[in-house]
Design a protein around this nucleic acid. Structure first.
Lengths: 234, 234
DNA sequence: CGAGGGATTGACAGTAATCAAGGGATGTGG
DNA sequence: CCACATCCCTTGATTACTGTCAATCCCTCG
């Protein structure tokens, strides 16, 4: 069952307002008085890789702001395979559809140990009714979701497997130090819509031709210019 | 060189309120007084197949509600090919990003003769500030955009070309009379991320095995059960 | 040390892209 | 009214890529 290490539980007013990542969060634009509108507890939840936040069809009771880590949103296919449709990182929100829909539309699973704020749907609905300052944040979240979806369609589902893997590696790379932390071959395959074997072969090839240097633990150093060339080839 | 057949131009108050498809449109929830807030002209625009609404990077000055017809939103790839990321039909809105972004993020092109309402960005922004009744409609539009994007990723970009074409045909079919109006092979290929030749071959195969009966003019009668089987095969 | 799960590699079959040629409808000009 | 040009669709032959099935390797954990 769920390893909900509840680091903190409160009535909203104090801690959300002083949250360290508030500038990135859904509540970024709220003002002091707005926090008075929060009358249900917002819980900080820690989950580790592999744990589930919610499943498709579950009652959409909460939204989750990602404070750290990575969450994957997946759909399952008729044949039992999975396709990852989006990755959520710091500042992103999982379960946005709670405001529009009675149930969740994806499986949300932790892909890298995550700290989350679990916000009752009612809280956001009430804020949405009573303060306009949450609206632009909500629109912005939807917008980035659409942007990411479109980007996945054009960059990660178009062209040869090789260039798609290259584009994904580029997207997962830290542009500061060219470091890159990959996921399991199976998850990478589910992002790209290819098999784990194909993914593995291509990454092995990147290691051989120097596009990637293996630092162990799925950690790599990426030769971004070389990868960009491959990404645009085919 | 736009063939903007302007059927009507007005100051907003009268015609929007009595619009025949208002229950489907962005302004569905507006009340009488809200229409007073519209101080810029909303134009009805007719465009025919192949014409462009706007391009990626253009100033996002207007939103377009689709009254009839079909609009495609495309991204162009580094290699010059195009990928269609979304289709818009009656009730959908093109250019939603105008509320979040200074420029458009896609090329919007008419895929089937369309009637559109061209709404200045200012109008929606003002409504967005002054009446809460537009919010839920905006959230709903973003939501359907994400839903469609996710569906395309899982259904139209996953599996063999054959099952993807089958799923697309099912999605384009009228469930009432099993009729199905397809697009050019090139556009179908751009939706699915396959070549026009592959698309053509598969549709020819569907015609041979009776999954599709050719009624001429890209009009078909679909054997949906047979297509569903193919869609889930591979 | 052994067991288990993921990653890698190989061999092969099946699928889709590519290159190239022909067919059919539509519209224009003689 | 017919001839022709154009555009799109179709089909064939071939190549290249990716999936499948299976074996092995490697690392971690118990």
């Amino acid at each position: 069952m769920e390893n909900q290490a509840i680091a903190n539980a409160w009535t909203g007013i104090s801690s959300c307002e002083s949250c360290g990542i508030r500038h990135l969060a859904l509540f970024a634009d709220l003002e002091h008085d707005d926090f008075e509108l929060i009358h249900k507890p917002i819980m900080e939840v820690n989950k580790s890789t592999g744990e589930s936040l919610y499943g498709e069809g579950d009652d959409a009771t909460h939204l989750y702001t990602v404070r750290s880590g990575v969450i994957k949103l997946t759909h399952y296919l008729p044949d039992g395979g999975q396709r990852i449709v989006r990755l959520l990182r710091t500042g992103d929100v999982a379960g946005l559809e709670a405001l529009v829909n009675p149930t969740y539309e994806h499986y949300a699973t932790v892909l890298r140990d995550a700290e989350l704020c679990q916000i009752p749907r009612d809280v956001v609905e009430r804020l949405n009714k009573e303060t306009p300052r949450i609206h632009s944040q909500l629109l912005a979240r939807w917008h980035t979701a659409v942007q990411q979806a479109d980007e996945w369609l054009t960059e990660l589902s178009t062209g040869s497997s090789k260039s798609r893997v290259a584009r994904l590696v580029i997207g997962l790379s830290d542009k500061g130090d060219n470091s890159c932390h990959l996921f399991s071959r199976e998850d990478l395959g589910a992002i790209l819509g290819v098999t784990t074997e194909t993914t593995s072969r291509i990454i092995a090839e990147f290691k051989r031709d120097g596009s990637l240097k293996d630092l162990g633990k799925n950690h790599f150093r990426a030769d971004l210019p070389k990868l960009e060339t491959i990404a645009n080839e085919n």
